[in-house]
């Protein structure tokens, strides 16, 4: 680990010590897992509570990962049901969907922190997240959620390097945003569509693919495989099509350029057009 990263980790630990005790918005992914570990080391396990919000948008594989990580690290872990699917702005799935989701999550975590005597709420945002389109970050600001990694200047590569140095199994885990992020903007969010995506991705995982997305475009599934896995995808196209159809899709497409982070954000200028056409 470089001296620069080491310094930044110490800065993040200092931010956590300023917080005194923390509730962490904890998905079990690489970012929030690192924050949980840093918080445990900086504050002691008794001053840290990792909270995972559960809804149909959170896949079972992610729930299991969050539980396993917290148990392995000796960090108190709480799962709560969240109701973002009852928010019209979230269901509408325009460019602000993440804002509506986080507007459900952060006040809930703030209430838990107040009731249980924790001083602060923190998340796992890193520097790179600030460069991407992240309307959820606005909700974090509105609810005074702190971001120790981003505030300390740690980017995604730094998160992975630090996690590896600390021996965390999450260090090379693929990014795992919520299932709603697979729905093209303007395609309304429903439990059924989220289930189709989850089943389709479970199917691809069972075939041995590691990094991918099944994008739901309303009338079809568009499969993005990480470029190193694209040749294997071509060779196993029939199996992919079968797995995704079994999940509930009638039409399956394989993206020729493969997985790229935030691919659906490329369509944001079309949101207004699409929103009026998709039931």
């Amino acid at each position: 680990m470089s001296q620069t990263l080491s310094d930044r980790l110490e800065r993040a630990a200092g931010i956590l010590r300023q917080c005194e005790s923390v509730v962490i918005g904890f998905s079990g992914g690489v970012d929030s897992a690192l924050v949980a570990r840093l918080a445990r080391d900086a504050l002691g396990a008794g001053r840290v509570l990792a909270v995972t919000g559960l809804s149909a948008a959170v896949p079972e594989v992610q729930r299991r990962a969050a539980r396993a990580f917290a148990a392995d690290q000796g960090i108190a872990h709480l799962e709560i049901a969240t109701s973002e699917l009852e928010r019209p702005g979230y269901v509408r799935n325009d460019g602000d969907r993440c804002y509506h989701c986080k507007s459900e999550l952060w006040p809930t975590l703030a209430a838990i922190a107040r009731e249980r005597g924790y001083r602060s709420v923190v998340d796992g945002a890193n520097v790179d997240d600030r460069a991407d389109y992240r309307p959820g970050a606005r909700a974090a600001l509105e609810h005074a959620v702190r971001s120790p990694l981003a505030e300390a200047g740690i980017d995604k590569a730094g998160v992975r390097a630090a996690s590896r140095a600390l021996g965390l199994d999450t260090w090379d885990a693929p990014a795992g945003p919520c299932l709603a992020s697979r729905l093209a903007y303007g395609v309304r969010v429903s439990e059924e569509r989220l289930e189709h995506v989850e089943r389709a991705e479970d199917g691809l995982r069972a075939l041995g693919f590691r990094e991918f997305r099944v994008r739901h475009h309303g009338d079809c599934a568009r499969v993005e495989l990480a470029p190193p896995e694209l040749d294997a995808g071509v060779a196993r196209a029939a199996e992919i099509a079968s797995a995704v159809r079994r999940a509930g899709f009638g039409r399956v497409l394989l993206d020729v350029e493969g997985y790229r982070r935030g691919a659906l954000n490329e369509a944001l200028p079309l949101v207004t057009l699409a929103a009026g056409r998709v039931a």
């Binding site: 569509r193 189709h196 739901h216 475009h217 309303g218 009338d219 079809c220 599934a221 568009r222 499969v223 196209a237 029939a238 992919i240 099509a241 995704v244 509930g248 899709f249 009638g250 039409r251 399956v252 497409l253 394989l254 993206d255 020729v256 350029e257 691919a263 490329e266 369509a267 079309l270």
Partner: peptide, 16 residues
């Protein structure tokens, strides 16, 4: 177009 993809089997009809 925003995305370019190859249809996997079928005739291109059908709903998700």
């Amino acid at each position: 177009f925003r995305y370019v993809a190859v249809e996997l089997g079928g005739d291109g009809r059908g709903d998700a």
